[in-house]
Design a protein around this nucleic acid. Structure first.
Length: 912
DNA sequence: AAACTTACGTA
DNA sequence: CGTACGTAAGTTTT
């Protein structure tokens, strides 16, 4: 889910590209045994078919292969297997791999299954007697490089690192088979201190335990790397062995022969006579029927679909016939002529930026520009001349040169890495789709093209290339995929423009979301400063708290259980301790905090107190750990604000979520102290809307009592309480006030009398009376709420003060549960959504005012009703004025918009 | 490995 | 039987 929603913009319709795709053919080579073995040990052997066949290795291997096909988009693929235990290496050195345990039968039985799967994919499995899989890979890698291909080698054997060079990258499993480290020359050098071609020299000295090749005692990778670098290689080092000083030198001299054997054995063969050449490894598409058959017997469910989805023949066509892909003529813009070419673009030009995004930044490596019916160009940023680069930057940054993008915020981040600004974005298809369909889970460009244009965004097959083995014909021309996306964006914009207008949402895109995406991009890039030392201290403190609470809990029950496991807790609470049962859930009885609290009141059992304490503090620890992981090299945390997720119109925050940092408890507030003013700035300033949702309720309902409450100057809940309970405001007790507060906020969520009684721990009848009395006094609210649902049922949607719609088809569902859910959504969406509208307008006004006044203070965060600003030296008063005035005037309601402001050097201090 | 479930932090 | 989110950890499924 995350992958689809993240700001990653693909060069191809895959999820997370790590590399630029180019027109070059790309060969993926997999060490079948090594990867299957990893899968075998990474996955539980409870993965089995109903007939008892264990499938963990096949399943894990196939899953990994699926991900590679999706993410790497290879044009060619081969999987190599070891054949037999006897190889030239065992003959040379009988102890080679001598410590390896016999292969478990449960694994052996799965190798044929893996080959069967590969057969259905029309992927070559290669094995040769007496030859190890890695030798086959090495031979193919060399041939492929000579043929001008890009090569990816996926193997868990470090010896393959010697193959790495500018054209060959090793994907080495980090954890299980799902996380692969991309080992290019720089990565190898960074990890081992030697370039890839010297890696076997290093390994010969250090030894390889898994191959039972002993190294030189007392020599680790550091020493080995130092020696190899100093002497320019192993051969020269061995020649000079007599001159090496110290214990390590002695040790080396004593093991020269072993080192020579090691070096001989770890050299991969590159001249194996293979039955297939690289040209025979082209991916041609799956035998889909066979895939179904094998998936049936292996009982692949989701995996079957994932697999079919990466079928290189793009056989989705079979199921939903669509127009064939398009082929664009890419303009061959002469060097130096780009400025002129760009100036000739129309206002309907689509732009696709290829690159990747990371928190608050990223990188761009190409830009494609295309207009339907017009020209298209693909610009490789790494190849662009200085003049053209300048022309492109000027065009991208030109506010009056119109551009259409899909996800302009992410594109802006990528371009920023190349010192390019993005302005003049007149349409964003991602934002437009969100405004039209806010309940959709994702807005992938390819999916939208399929739905709104009725075609796939794919490049047409080159004519007559079928069956050709000539490598120059393989793969599409460079930049076609990007150009097709740019072209698709422009066409999609035309379609969505109409839909947007139909929904009366054009102004929301033009005046709110589109300009806001620029503001958010700036906020994300800036980030907020974090005190890592302080966080580290907190982490320790919380970790101790966790350990203490756990120890006390264990002492009470006389055994150790995993306190984080609801399943084990149920056993302790309801079986061992025989406590009364809590609310039923799918997997038994809930152990959530509210229920544990109830149980504690009933039983006063000390285990519950320790458990609750453990929950609290381990949650805090987890939060701190997450924050620590998110601190970027600049010492700041760069969250990503998601602008197309929340169906009501709110923003959300991810990686990390800075909109749910604790504040309610003292221990939680400590975490807020870690967010501090950055170097060169004076303070943090927070400003929040007080009771914005109740004010919107007053505005939308027009209830005279509620409006009077906000104009009275009296505390809202006290005022409302005095009316409901018919006492003087001064006589509203804290208990009365908290009931009213819960009631008021509950209204905006569609709270029932039962729910209210639960929350307040009162009888349902009492809750019902409270609600009746409330509505008696504030009849406008009651009428408004019933009117909202009624109208939404009639029109099919709710709307906010800015006309942001949420469609709720379930309002007319026959299913009572769904219908009631939709009704609560209908009650809440206009209120939550209008608040979101208001703070979005406020953000635009605040940013505009800061810019206009030439202030250096800057927006950092938005937390639904709160903004956080970093104040530049000397701008404290001005910044506060900007916040108060712009937030207060964001939208005129029939009650005032109150803003309260706080300041300090940390987020905690600035809070109020 | 991936999907699902539970729990819990914020507004 | 209260809306909107995101994340982590444990559990189950494949």
């Amino acid at each position: 889910m995350r992958a689809m929603l993240s700001g990653v913009t693909s060069t191809v319709p895959s999820r997370t590209p790590d590399k630029p795709s180019s027109g070059r053919p790309r060969l993926l080579l997999i060490d079948g045994h090594s990867m299957a073995y990893r899968a075998f040990y990474a996955l539980p052997d409870t993965l089995a078919t109903s007939s008892g066949q264990i499938t963990n290795a096949v399943y894990g291997f196939t899953s990994m292969l699926t991900n590679l096909l999706r993410d790497e988009q290879p044009t060619h693929l081969a999987v190599a297997f070891d054949a037999g235990r006897v190889t030239f290496r065992t003959e040379r050195f009988p102890e080679y791999k001598g410590t390896r345990l016999a292969t478990p039968d449960a694994f052996k039985g799965q190798v044929p299954l893996i080959k069967e799967v590969l057969d259905t994919l029309n992927v070559a499995s290669i094995e040769m007697a007496g030859i190890e899989a890695d030798d086959i890979l090495a031979t193919l890698a060399l041939q492929a490089k000579a043929a001008g291909m890009e090569v990816l080698v996926c193997s868990g054997d470090r010896d393959t690192l010697q193959l790495v060079n500018g054209d060959v990258t090793v994907l080495y499993p980090k954890k299980g088979v799902s996380e692969l480290a991309r080992m290019d020359p720089a990565a190898v050098e960074a990890k081992y201190g030697v370039p890839p071609e010297r890696y076997p020299d290093l390994a010969a000295l250090v030894g390889e335990t898994s191959d039972n090749l002993p190294g030189v005692p007392g020599v680790g990778p550091k020493t080995a790397a130092k020696w190899i670098t100093a002497h320019g290689g192993l051969a020269a080092l061995l020649d000079a062995a007599d001159e090496i000083k110290g214990k390590a030198g002695e040790s080396l001299r004593a093991h020269l022969d072993q080192v020579r054997v090691n070096r001989e054995l770890n050299a991969l063969l590159t001249d194996v006579e293979l039955p297939l050449g690289v040209a025979d490894l082209a991916l041609e598409g799956f035998d889909r029927e066979a895939v179904h058959l094998v998936s049936d017997t292996l009982q692949f469910g989701q995996l079957r679909d994932r697999l079919l989805a990466v079928d290189p023949s793009g056989a989705a066509v079979e199921e939903t016939p669509v127009a064939a892909g398009i082929e664009l003529d890419l303009a061959d813009v002469a060097p130096g002529a780009l400025g002129t070419w760009l100036a000739a673009r129309s206002e309907r030009v689509g732009v696709e930026v290829a690159g990747k995004t990371v928190a608050g930044g990223g990188d761009a490596w190409a830009v494609a520009v295309a207009e339907p019916g017009g020209e298209a160009a693909y610009l490789d940023l790494t190849q662009l001349g200085a003049d053209d680069e300048k022309a492109l930057a000027a065009w991208l940054a030109d506010p009056v040169a119109p551009k259409i993008l899909h996800g302009a915020k992410a594109a802006a981040h990528m371009l920023a890495a190349r010192n390019m600004d993005l302005a003049g974005v007149t349409f964003d298809t991602e934002l437009a789709a969100y405004l039209c369909y806010p309940d959709q889970r994702g807005y992938d460009l390819g999916d939208l093209a399929m739905r709104h244009l009725g075609r796939e965004l794919k490049v047409a097959e080159p004519d007559g290339a079928q069956g050709a083995l000539d490598l120059s014909l393989e793969g599409e021309a460079e930049g076609q995929a990007e150009a097709v996306r740019a072209h698709g964006v422009a066409e999609l914009a035309t379609a969505l423009e109409g839909e947007l207008a139909d929904r009366g949402a054009t102004h929301l895109l033009d005046d709110v979301e589109l300009p806001l995406s620029g503001v958010l991009a700036r906020m994300e890039r800036i980030g907020i400063a974090a005190d890592t030392e302080y966080l580290t201290g907190l982490e320790r403190q919380f970790a101790e708290g966790v350990a203490d609470a756990a120890a006390e809990a264990y002492a009470v029950i006389g055994r150790e259980v995993n306190l984080g496991s609801p399943k084990q807790l149920q056993e302790v609470l309801f079986d061992q301790l025989g406590m009364p049962k809590t609310k039923k859930i799918k997997t038994g009885y809930t152990t959530d905090a509210a229920s544990l609290q109830d149980l504690f009141v009933k039983t006063e059992h000390p285990f519950l107190a320790h458990l609750l304490a453990h929950r609290d503090v381990s949650r805090l620890r987890t939060t701190v750990e997450g924050l620590l992981r998110s601190v970027a090299p600049d010492g700041r945390i760069h969250t990503t604000f998601q602008q197309t997720i929340a169906a009501t119109g709110r923003l959300s925050s991810t990686d990390p979520n800075l909109q749910n940092i604790p504040i309610r408890t003292e221990a939680g507030r400590q975490i807020r102290r870690a967010f501090q003013v950055g170097a060169g700035y004076e303070s943090l300033l927070t400003a929040d809307y007080s009771q914005i949702e109740m004010r919107i309720m007053a505005h939308l309902s027009g209830d005279v009592g509620l409006i009077a409450a906000f104009n009275s100057g009296e505390d809202l809940h006290r005022y409302v309480g005095s009316r409901v309970f018919e006492v003087a405001p001064a006589d509203v007790t804290p208990e009365m006030r908290s009931k009213i507060k819960a009631m008021s906020y509950g209204l905006a969520y569609g709270l029932s009398a039962f729910g209210l009684s639960q929350q307040l721990n009162i009888a349902t009848g009492e809750a019902q009376t409270l609600m009746d009395d409330y509505f008696e006094r504030f009849g406008g609210v009651r009428d408004y709420l019933s009117g909202v649902v009624e109208e939404a049922r009639a029109t099919g949607y709710t709307a906010t003060i800015l006309g942001r719609r949420r469609y709720l088809p379930d309002l007319t569902s026959d299913n009572r549960q769904r219908r009631q859910m939709a009704e609560r959504m209908a009650l809440n969406a206009p209120i939550q959504g209008s608040a979101a509208d208001i703070i979005k307008l406020a953000m635009l006004k605040v940013q505009h005012e800061l810019d206009t006044r030439g202030l250096s203070s800057r927006l950092l965060l938005q937390v639904h009703d709160e903004l956080v600003i970093e104040v530049a030296p000397g701008e404290r008063a001005a910044a506060e004025d900007v916040l108060r005035s712009q937030m207060g005037a964001a939208f005129v309601l029939n009650v005032p918009l109150d803003v309260s402001v706080g300041t300090g050097s940390t987020w905690h201090e600035a809070g109020h």
